[in-house]
């Protein structure tokens, strides 16, 4: 790119669009493609519900050990729900499941994002012919995916936490609310939230770059 000042002066009209304007276009894009957006978001919701359920129920279990009353622990041990001798093994198992949940989320979210970008290759090619800059297309897709990511992750978290809470209520009885103060739980929720949004952005960056850098001819040629 030529950064000669005189050169730049003549290009003032190619100033990138303001973020505000891109957000407006992105929001409109989400609205008019509402069912498509719902599909993408529900993919994220499912993945995040799974992950947050695993992590939250693990956090409840940890809280029981740390803050639970003696009676509860004795009762749970008698019922065979927790076994203090194998608890370390169980923890490792939980991490495996959480790791798996993470992988599933990654695949699910990336797939949803990839589809929503590739099905719009032609549209991207058209926009490039009309003078859209690579940066505009990147930003447009990242903002769209950010919206989907925040919404999907929040909903997924609520569902996952709700499930873990209901399960906890049946396992630990009324004491489950007493387990709330909880560093573990907070950390799990925070972790899920950040992971969900990061995964969504990650899932969008690759196809968005692919689309934005594609020459307009190629993008136009691709089938709908």
């Amino acid at each position: 790119m030529n950064h000669d000042p005189q050169h730049r002066a003549n290009e003032e009209e190619i100033q990138p669009l303001s973020l505000h304007k891109i957000v407006r276009i992105a929001v409109r894009g989400i609205k008019v493609r509402i069912w498509r957006s719902v599909l993408v978001v529900s993919g994220i919701v499912l993945a995040m519900a799974f992950l947050s359920y695993i992590l939250c129920s693990d956090a409840f279990a940890r809280n029981v050990l740390e803050y639970g009353s003696r009676d509860l622990i004795r009762h749970l041990t008698a019922e065979g729900i927790i076994n203090l001798e194998t608890i370390a093994d169980q923890r490792v198992q939980t991490y495996w499941v959480a790791g798996l949940a993470l992988l599933i989320s990654l695949a699910g979210i990336m797939n949803a994002m990839l589809m929503s970008v590739t099905e719009r290759f032609r549209e991207i090619g058209t926009m490039k012919c009309l003078g859209a800059l690579t940066g505009f297309i990147m930003k447009l897709f990242l903002i769209e995916s950010l919206f989907a990511g925040v919404l999907g992750t929040t909903l997924g978290l609520i569902i996952g936490f709700g499930l873990a809470y209901v399960e906890g209520y049946f396992t630990y009885g009324g004491e489950v609310t007493a387990l709330f103060p909880p560093l573990h739980l907070l950390l799990s929720i925070l972790f899920c939230f950040i992971t969900g949004i990061l995964l969504t952005l990650l899932g969008a960056v690759y196809p968005a770059r692919l689309a934005a850098k594609m020459s307009p001819v190629m993008a136009l040629r691709s089938e709908m």
């Binding site: 009209e13 012919c129 009309l130 800059l133």
Partner: peptide, 20 residues
Amino acid sequence: TLELAWLRCHKIGYIFQSYN
């Protein structure tokens, strides 16, 4: 790329076979 985008935007109007 930036200058090409400018050219496409200001100097050329496109009409496609499938409207696009």
